[in-house]
Computed example of a mutant assay.
Amino acid sequence: MPEPTTPLFDTLVIIGPGLIGSSILRRAREDRRIARHLVACDISPEVRARVAELDIADAVEADPVAAVRGADCVIICVPVGAIAMVAAQVLPVMKPGAILSEVGSVKKTVMDAVQPLLAAHPDIAFVPAHPMAGTEFSGPDAGFATLFEDRWCLLTPPENTPPAAITRITTLWEMMGARVRCMTVEHHDRVCAIVSHLPHLLAFTICGTADDLADETRSEVLDFAASGFRDFTRIAASDPTMWRDIFLNNREALLELLDRFIADAQAMGEAIRTGNEDVIVGRIRRGRAIRRSLIENRQA
């Protein structure tokens, strides 16, 4: 008879079981090789009650301090602006050798805020992660076990992070179905500014522009919305608090790329104004090529 497989973690704690957090719990619930004991923690009584109803955790806690005692791995899944505050609460009570992680979409400001806290707790490894997956929905009902399948998860561990901790978090995300890559926080924030943050900024802005139109035209926009506008509205339906924090915490990289986009948009406008077909067709072809690449890379 084969020996039972030892789980990657004995106790895994998810603080903030929203879309990402509840998806981690669902995957770990299905695959008990990930963790023997799953703990969900949230300050909202409604969220805690719903997590209990969904039965996606073995225990549900209101207090992060109580939730993390004895845990092998703690993953903070709250908006970027609150990550450091939660880290400050849990680090003093985490057991030696445990791993602290988070799933924020911005890394530089999080690292700047958390590293001074880590200095007082050198026996805790910090391995930030960013699963590049999501939908426009939020809350514990929004999650699903296959959310991370074939998606990238970017790790940004500080220098001198124990290799064993990086290996365990890498294994965690691979068991979630993700592809994993390590990079610096600066490179991460610049990459995410162009592939995620700027597109969301544009979607929110375009929907705002449509909403500001005269009543008659606005009604027609809503009545006759074509696929392009519908795609923007799907992105624009994302959680306001989360995206406020992302924009403000990644402002330098985002504003730099926004300036480049404005210049490129003006160049395209000038090509349309002057009838420069070569520029127009060239830009469209580049867009088509990017789309084909995404499909080939299984990211579309």
Rank of each mutant, 00 (worst) to 15 (best):
C153G: 09
S44P: 03
T5R: 14
L198E: 03
A164T: 12
R292L: 10
M183H: 07
G16F: 06
A226Y: 09
E256S: 14
L155Q: 02
P128C: 08
R50E: 14
V106K: 02
E186G: 10
A84Q: 05
M242P: 00
I34D: 07
A236N: 07
E3S: 14
V93W: 07
S101Q: 02
R288Y: 11
L154F: 10
N297A: 15
A59R: 11
T161Y: 06
W243P: 01
L155W: 00
D259M: 05
P79F: 06
L201K: 01
R260A: 15
C182P: 10
A253H: 13
I262R: 15
S227M: 13
S23H: 00
A66M: 11
A87Y: 01
N249F: 12
A59H: 12
L294K: 10
S293Q: 15
V13R: 00
A267H: 13
W173K: 07
P199H: 06
I75C: 10
M1S: 15
M175S: 12
T161W: 00
F232K: 10
F204H: 03
E30M: 12
A271Q: 08
A271C: 05
D58M: 06
A82T: 14
R36Y: 00
R36F: 01
L147A: 04
E3D: 14
V279L: 14
I99P: 09
D259W: 08
S105Y: 02
A226N: 14
F137G: 08
D215H: 11
D123V: 11
D42Y: 05
I20V: 11
T11Y: 05
A289D: 15
I194H: 09
E102H: 09
M175Q: 15
S138A: 15
I24E: 01
A82H: 13
H130A: 12
A142D: 04
K108Y: 03
L100W: 02
V279S: 13
C41S: 11
A120T: 13
F144H: 15
T156I: 03
P128R: 00
V60L: 10
R50P: 08
G177Q: 03
V103S: 11
M132R: 03
R230Q: 12
A113H: 05
A59V: 06
M183Q: 11
A84W: 02
L155E: 04
I15P: 04
A120D: 13
F9S: 05
S44Y: 07
P162R: 13
R291F: 10
K107G: 09
V68C: 13
A113E: 07
L202T: 03
I290P: 01
V93K: 06
V90F: 05
V195M: 08
L38C: 10
